[in-house]
Design a protein around this nucleic acid. Structure first.
Lengths: 213, 213
DNA sequence: GCTCGCTTAGTCAAACTTGACTACCGAGAT
DNA sequence: ATCTCGGTAGTCAAGTTTGACTAAGCGAGC
């Protein structure tokens, strides 16, 4: 699964009630069009689909005063909140090697209590270690590792990714355990969306070099 | 773009001529259903689409002797070979953070001359360094990095990934420069597909732990 | 001689993604 | 007065992905 549902649910949730264009602007503000598949079509599709599945509640609204077609506003339902939290926990704890999911869940991690996040990240480290073990066991032929030829580089890459990913996760755990950031139930939450009247300082900027998506 | 086209072109190319089920078996042999979106539907779709676009040439074949519906055999056209090499070079040189593309291109890298691969990997390192620079410049606010809150962890993760990715690439460059592996034009190529009569030792195995795809 | 299950080979609908496109309004320029 | 331009809000067709499903032959067992 892509990060689009997590992102859209998270954006609507932070507003309380939001229309598609607002969500679209938030995701652009977060730079999500750079590191995920957050394009207009995907966003509107996700909104409609999740409304159909009862994760969002859609309010039909009269034409906006600012031009353009009439807009629909959405609210996250209880079921939607559950889904959001499940997606968030899942992508913090699992090692699926998808940078978009991890990036999105880092952005939302403060919506969970500190202790929960620590537990999930520890689970993540365990998952990575287990994955590493299964890879090295599985792809080491009986005749010794030299037999694989250049295919061994694939395993080498995977193991390197797993090791550095685990190392980074341990660093994050330490920082969080050391008191960094403000988590759910610890006071004023971090504000990560644009207010209705606020302009987006990151709109229409040039892409990063080397982005081949 | 996903890795499916690169994988399918590569598989057909190594056979010279192959039908869909053969490609499907190769990809399973390579474990590609574990680390990419190589499922039956995607494979057959890619074959048909690339045939329509002239990258593959389709031969209609009589019903197989082994049961099942009649099968279609494919051959890579000249245009398809160009596309394959372009995809391969592109995914070796660019930093798109997609493990499936890099994994696939590591598997096929020996289809290129050694010097070409070295050049592409050096380009990869430069691309990563440039990307890292643009990220750190862009996301460091005027008031100092502390202002970002937990959002700074996203940048931290990206930078960590970039640095470890560059380091790994430098290691690979060294090994290849040191004479490892057999590249195009250097003699007997590595055989990476199943012969028609060979059984697949990796068929229907249990998934790796922690795979959340 | 018949059924059950396995392998072979591929199809299909539903969902998702992509990039381009539409339609509307207001503000400033002509 | 009207024209065009940029911002607002969303739609659409084409392509891709997913997971379940089909259909045909073969061999083991009854």
């Amino acid at each position: 699964m892509s990060a689009i549902r997590l992102l859209v649910l998270g954006a609507v949730r932070q507003h309380g009630r939001a229309h598609g264009y607002q969500v679209r602007n938030d995701l652009e503000y977060w730079g999500a069009h750079e590191w995920s598949n957050a394009k207009p079509g995907s966003i509107y599709h996700a909104l409609k689909q999740m409304a159909k599945q009862g994760l969002l509640h859609a309010h039909e609204i009269a034409p906006s005063t600012a031009g353009g077609p009439p807009r629909t506003e959405y609210e996250v339902t209880e079921k939607g909140t559950e889904e959001f939290l499940a997606l968030l926990r899942g992508s913090l704890a699992s090692y699926d090697q998808r940078p978009d999911m991890l990036t999105a869940s880092l952005g939302f991690m403060v919506d969970l209590p500190r202790e929960d996040v620590l537990g999930l990240l520890e689970e993540r480290v365990r998952t990575i270690e287990q994955w590493r073990k299964s890879v090295t066991e599985y792809y080491t032929p009986e005749d010794g590792p030299g037999q694989l030829g250049h295919i061994g580089e694939i395993m080498n890459y995977w193991v390197h990714s797993a090791d550095t990913g685990a190392e980074w996760t341990r660093g994050l755990i330490e920082r969080i355990r050391g008191g960094a950031y403000t988590f759910a139930g610890e006071g004023e939450p971090f504000v990560g969306v644009l207010r209705e009247d606020e302009e987006n300082p990151y709109a229409t900027r040039e892409p990063h070099p080397g982005d081949a998506r």
